[in-house]
């Protein structure tokens, strides 16, 4: 009975895999010691698109990338990359994917040229093709000047670019970018965003990227999946997700971060408020109708003598998508903060 169900599951994932760059279904990953990193994750990525897995640290993004890139095996479930099974056809997958992991894999003692050439040869490119591709990629990522220096002397941004160049040397069909901008300064991040956008516009390259920056997913992804504790919470285009939120977003800046204990309970009681979160002095609420909800909220705050500095009503952003689906708001350091569940 249960075997049949599993086989049925495989068949549907396999069906989805046809014509898709990536298809995953029912992915479970339990590490030694019982830590459950993935809990039935499934999604499909169309060829030539940028797909973002968005979620806080520990949501299962990196585990998903490890499984899809054949580094790790799922405890249960199925995944197909470029139509190949991650377990039975790992070798075929390895030939057609490029991987830029969080831990870069750039050899610091070697130069950019040497790193790229080793990578090219390992992927079976001939000596001449490897040389040509190396020159091409160094120019493409503006690393030519530094190409003869040991990679350990590079800045974070340069190293990340070399990383991506190494992932591209064999012209993969699918590129995995695991938190490509984590640890980069704002300038390098903006630069990296442009590079990633340019990549997807070229050829038929499919990009799966993970990030814990809402802004990054909003900016880059054609579609995104919100992950929480190893599960898919919601999936769609950034626009769809935002449009799916009826109503408005209310942001109130408070004059204090020390709030009375009963305030939360009372805000929860309000019919006009669907969800809310407080981070330091920022109160963020999701409401059906901003203009009528705002006075109600302000009245409650006033009742508790909480000073208010400013209030804004706006259309929802991905922050609000997160607030609605995961139930706790999202701060940009990648940690989640409390709120109603």
């Amino acid at each position: 009975m249960s075997t049949e169900r599993v086989r049925l599951g495989t068949a549907t994932v396999r069906d989805r895999a046809r014509g898709a760059a990536i298809a995953a279904g029912g992915l479970m990953k339990v590490y030694k010691g019982g830590v459950k990193a993935l809990d039935g994750l499934g999604f499909t990525v169309a060829p030539g698109t940028i797909f973002a897995l968005l979620g806080p640290n520990g949501a299962g993004k990196s585990t998903t990338v490890k499984i899809l890139t054949t580094l790790s095996r799922p405890t249960e479930g199925d995944a197909f990359v470029a139509g190949f099974d991650v377990i039975r056809e790992a070798d075929e997958i390895r030939r057609v994917i490029g991987v830029v992991a969080q831990r870069s894999g750039v050899d610091g003692a070697s130069t950019a040229v040497e790193n790229l050439q080793l990578q090219g040869r390992i992927y079976g490119l001939g000596a001449k093709t490897t040389r040509l591709r190396t020159t091409e990629l160094l120019e493409r990522f503006r690393l030519t000047e530094a190409a003869g220096r040991a990679a350990r002397t590079y800045s974070g941004g340069m190293r990340r670019k070399l990383d991506i160049a190494m992932g591209l040397i064999h012209r993969p069909r699918i590129l995995f970018l695991d938190e490509p901008t984590t640890g980069l300064d704002p300038e390098a991040r903006a630069d990296m965003w442009q590079e990633i956008q340019a990549l997807s516009e070229q050829e038929e390259l499919t990009v799966l990227l993970t990030t814990h920056y809402l802004e990054e997913a909003d900016r880059l992804a054609d579609r995104l999946a919100l992950l929480d504790r190893g599960r898919l919470v919601v999936e769609g285009t950034p626009e769809e997700l935002k449009a799916g939120l009826l109503g408005d977003s209310v942001q109130i800046e408070l004059g204090t971060s020390e709030l009375p204990a009963l305030l939360s309970a009372e805000l929860e009681q309000l019919e006009a408020v669907r969800a809310f979160s407080v981070e330091e002095t920022q109160l963020r609420a999701q409401v059906d109708h901003g203009a009528t909800a705002l006075p109600v909220i302000l009245a409650v705050l006033d009742g508790y003598r909480v000073p208010v500095i400013s209030a804004t009503i706006s259309r929802p952003s991905l922050d609000d998508v997160y607030l609605q689906y995961v139930g706790h708001s999202y701060d940009h350091s990648g940690t989640t903060v409390g709120g109603p569940r």
């Binding site: 992991a101 831990r103 870069s104 894999g105 390992i122 079976g124």
Partner: peptide, 14 residues
């Protein structure tokens, strides 16, 4: 292992 060089090789056809 720390720098990810080995993992990078493991996801390649090496």
């Amino acid at each position: 292992l720390d720098t990810g060089v080995i993992d990078r090789m493991l996801v390649s056809p090496v």
